[in-house]
Amino acid sequence: KKKIKIYIENENGEKKTIEIEVEGDIDEIAKELAKKYNVKIVKIEP
């Protein structure tokens, strides 16, 4: 498992940072999160 930080922006332009532990393809997981929460991924840090 890797701990990563995902910087997101919602439709109101509010920026947030999510810190999660992931296993597998980080890009795939980030895309799923973006779709699920309707946010834009700004940056992903390993």
Rank of each mutant, 00 (worst) to 15 (best):
E9P: 01
E19W: 07
K35Y: 05
G13Q: 05
E14S: 07
E19I: 13
I4V: 14
K43E: 05
P46K: 08
T17E: 07
K35W: 04
I6K: 00
I6S: 00
K40I: 15
I8S: 01
E21V: 07
I4S: 02
G24H: 04
K36A: 04
E19S: 07
I6L: 09
I8A: 05
N12M: 13
K36N: 05
V39E: 05
K15H: 13
K15P: 08
N10R: 11
E32D: 08
V22G: 07
E21W: 14
Y7L: 10
K1Q: 07
N12S: 08
E32T: 06
E28N: 05
V22K: 02
L33A: 01
I6N: 00
N12D: 11
E45I: 10
K3Q: 08
E14R: 07
K2H: 13
L33G: 00
Y37P: 11
I4M: 10
E11C: 12
K31R: 13
A30H: 02
V22Q: 05
D27Q: 07
K3E: 02
K5C: 08
E19D: 07
E9Y: 04
K1S: 10
E19R: 03
E32M: 09
N12G: 07
L33F: 11
N10G: 08
I29A: 11
K31G: 06
E23L: 09
V42P: 00
A34E: 15
E28G: 06
P46S: 13
I44L: 04
I18V: 06
I41E: 02
I8V: 12
I26V: 11
G13F: 04
P46Y: 15
N38P: 13
L33V: 05
A34W: 02
D27L: 13
D27M: 13
G13V: 00
K15C: 12
E32A: 13
K16V: 08
N12F: 13
K2F: 14
K35D: 08
I20H: 02
N10I: 08
N12C: 14
E9K: 03
K2D: 05
I4L: 10
D25L: 04
K16P: 01
Y7Q: 06
V42S: 03
N12T: 09
V42I: 15
K31P: 01
N10P: 01
I20R: 02
K2P: 07
E14C: 13
E28V: 09
N38L: 05
V22H: 07
K36Q: 07
K3P: 05
I41N: 01
K31H: 07
G13C: 05
E28C: 10
E23H: 10
K1G: 08
V22I: 12
K5T: 12
I26Y: 08
N12Q: 13
I26C: 05
K2T: 13
K15Y: 12
T17F: 11
K36Y: 10
I8C: 13
E19K: 05
K15W: 08
E11I: 09
E19H: 09
G13N: 03
K36G: 03
V39R: 00
K40C: 14
K40S: 10
A34L: 06
E14H: 10
L33W: 10
I41R: 00
E19L: 08
E14G: 07
A30W: 08
D27K: 05
K36C: 15
Y7P: 00
